[in-house]
């Protein structure tokens, strides 16, 4: 972990209060979405973030762009702790980080024109005159491969892939340095996924962007990210260079996650998941309340007594190349 990281997440906790609670009775139970998450992203780097549904991936992305206030921990962006800033002092940092959501059908208001959508961040952040805003929006649309004439149209006139380009144009219009990509290709068909990934890679190269790339698609992550973090139930269990992580996963959860991907097996014509006895997760449902031990222990085929009692820390392994939170990794 470099000290001068562009974005540094330090011990991020997010707890949501469960249930409505009454008018006088506040809901007491909480759900821990993220627990002590620490990650860094260097300038110009793409960090992949993978994990199953409900692992807290999207919540972490929202913490980064200050949509969800963390219950604990710091978000240090270019040397400044954003969590300590009020709305007014946060304003100068807003244009520098943007987010692309999973479903552009949801993230673009169907009642707005594309011009209004793409210029919205500029209007809200009071950047430039109306004319300059339109010109910048037109430039950005062309940059992502759409005609400037699209400004007058509505998003419902465009396909899913085109809408995601519009969402990317909106994210880029403030000339950000960091983009949080929250499953930007998950809702698209395969050929469109490839085009959007190419576009994102091209933009990263030409604009020097940093990405936090949130996905459950291991293929997409290996294309775009040099380094990947694996999230399980709100905890980082393994961080490693993409190639190392895919070739030699060491945390039992990472192993299970990668084994669950269908792959070609010699002698068979169709790909299938290769789940061996050694890596199979148990089907035991995760417990409602969490014990003191490792969060993965209830499903882990290798759990030992120690795993139930003490939670493993995220510590460097193999020199500085990898971070691992497991008492007995592969």
């Amino acid at each position: 972990m470099s000290e001068a990281a562009f974005l540094r997440l330090e011990e991020i906790d997010v707890r949501f209060r469960l249930g409505e609670g009454g008018l006088l009775r506040r809901g007491r139970e909480t759900f821990t979405a993220l627990a002590g998450v620490s990650l860094t992203i260097d300038r110009g780097e793409c960090l992949g973030l993978i994990g199953e549904s409900g692992s807290g991936k999207s919540t972490l992305g929202r913490v980064v762009v200050q949509l969800v206030p963390p219950s604990g921990g710091r978000v240090v962006f270019d040397g400044t702790d954003l969590t300590a800033l009020d709305a007014r002092r946060l304003r100068p940092y807003r244009p520098r980080m943007q987010m692309v959501f999973q479903d552009p059908g949801e993230s673009l208001n169907p009642r707005f024109t594309i011009g209004d959508i793409v210029t919205e961040p500029l209007r809200l952040l009071r950047i430039g005159t109306r004319k300059e805003q339109r010109a910048r929006a037109a430039r950005m649309l062309e940059r992502v491969g759409l005609p400037a004439a699209a400004l007058a149209h509505r998003p419902t006139q465009y396909s899913g892939g085109q809408r995601q380009r519009i969402a990317i144009a909106r994210a880029l219009v403030t000339e950000p340095e960091l983009l949080v990509l929250d499953e930007p290709t998950s809702g698209l068909d395969v050929s469109m996924q490839a085009r959007i990934l190419n576009l994102l890679r091209d933009l990263q190269d030409s604009l020097g962007l940093s990405y936090l790339f949130i996905t459950h698609d291991v293929g997409a992550v290996s294309y775009l990210a040099r380094r990947v973090a694996v999230l399980y139930r709100g905890r980082v269990v393994e961080v490693a260079p993409t190639r190392d992580l895919i070739r030699t996963p060491r945390h039992p959860y990472t192993v299970a996650l990668l084994d669950a991907l269908p792959r070609f097996v010699r002698g068979e014509s169709l790909p299938r998941p290769v789940i061996t006895e050694a890596t199979a997760t148990t089907d035991e449902p995760p417990p409602e309340t969490e014990g003191p031990g490792c969060a993965y222990a209830p499903r882990c085929p290798h759990r030992q007594e120690r795993c139930r009692v003490t939670a493993p820390e995220l510590v460097p392994a193999e020199g500085d190349k990898r971070l691992l939170a497991c008492h007995h990794p592969f």
Partner: peptide, 9 residues
């Protein structure tokens, strides 16, 4: 889209 706008302040 409301969250996106909130994120722009």
């Amino acid at each position: 889209y409301v969250l996106a706008a909130r994120q722009f302040g």
